[in-house]
Design a protein around this nucleic acid. Structure first.
Lengths: 202, 202
DNA sequence: CCCTTTGTAGCATGACTGTGCCAAATAAAA
DNA sequence: TTTTATTTGGCACAGTCATGCTACAAAGGG
């Protein structure tokens, strides 16, 4: 038959073009035409892999969520391993949660695109579904981190973990929102400070 | 001459129509036509008061910033008054910072529109200017609140107020971001809890 | 060699947009 | 009443958009 091409890989390539366009020009500019040009394809080719514009955007948002989820879960085993020493746990926790902050070029691009998606989701039911998945995913992850630290005896007693989960997740979201104004160094300091306030003295 | 109309008031009326359209359908739908219809005017009338679409959106964003600033500063005198008792200070602080959260229909509308503007500002220099003003304004306000509490002896000692300002401001931003998922009650609880952790024991 | 399937490309259409420009209505001033 | 500046209304154009549809190229099976 024709040129052998892996459709899944193609779709991911196109999704990456979507990310680049959104980061550079904003979600409103991520039309089929501009995405096709960014991907080095003809508009007809893009439409061969996606039913239409909506499906393209939803797929891009979903694959961003998948990518983030995979990276975050990669940090989790070391954290849940009971044999990991406490000092190392602190480092891992900061690294893991730092993945959600715009500290590097890579994560800055991700948070900017994620912000564009989240804002758009407020008025678009199809995106809202995926936005809710990200929201729940981040809360669930933060909760697991806090639970793990708690069981290891690393947290202050009498914490309401439901409240602390929301507090920490909101803090991360808020920092992600201030890309370009708050320096990465300050973000790190703020995150570290917040975790300090949760940890038990010894 | 013609109908006596206060241009400033008219511009504000139109800006409010912009807010309603953005909250209902998103910033991308806030075209001259849809805004004119929402305001009950002809498109030509709207264009009489604004040079073009860009100026309309920038003006709307600026007036939202002005409105928020005025409301927030209204709470400040009571807080800075040395004769205000400590228990009352706590209430006022919560009320003041709560203005930045989507707790009521009114403030929810404001935070949603503000989010739309903030996201758009990432790729639009004209909006970025106003977004930076809001960012700085919120930080400055939070800083004043913390400074005031500190001077009144209400805070833990040895706090790095620059870090704490950013931490609290980011928390507020993050909560504002999760409109529709996190309940107003939980938001209040999280804010109260955060303030507790800053207050000195007595 | 032909045929079928898959990928690539793009034309045509209708909808929506911002804006330049013009005309009418209005009401205060002369 | 006449004049005149302001306000209101909208036509017309060029641009961009998503999408239905068609056409062609490529490559492996018969």
């Amino acid at each position: 038959m024709p040129k052998i091409v892996d459709p899944g890989a193609r779709r991911l390539e196109i999704a990456e073009a979507v990310f680049r366009v959104i980061q550079r020009d904003g979600l409103a500019q991520a039309s089929l035409r501009s995405v096709a040009e960014e991907a080095g394809l003809a508009i007809g080719s893009v439409r061969h892999y996606f039913r239409g514009h909506d499906e393209l955007i939803v797929f891009a948002m979903r694959s961003l969520g998948d990518r983030l989820e995979a990276r975050l879960l990669g940090h989790l085993p070391a954290l849940l391993d009971p044999s990991t020493p406490r000092s190392r746990r602190q480092e891992i926790t900061e690294e893991l949660l730092g993945e959600l902050l715009p500290l590097t070029e890579q994560t800055r691009a991700e948070t900017d695109v994620w912000l564009a998606f989240s804002a758009a989701a407020k008025n678009r039911p199809d995106l809202a579904e995926e936005a809710a998945r990200m929201y729940d995913g981040v809360r669930a992850l933060v909760r697991r981190v806090l639970d793990g630290a708690n069981e290891a005896g690393g947290l202050l007693e009498d914490l309401d973990l439901a409240v602390e989960t929301e507090r920490l997740a909101a803090l991360l979201d808020g920092l992600a929102l201030s890309t370009g104004r708050t320096s990465p160094e300050l973000m790190r300091t703020v995150l570290r400070r917040h975790l300090e306030t949760l940890r038990c003295p010894e």
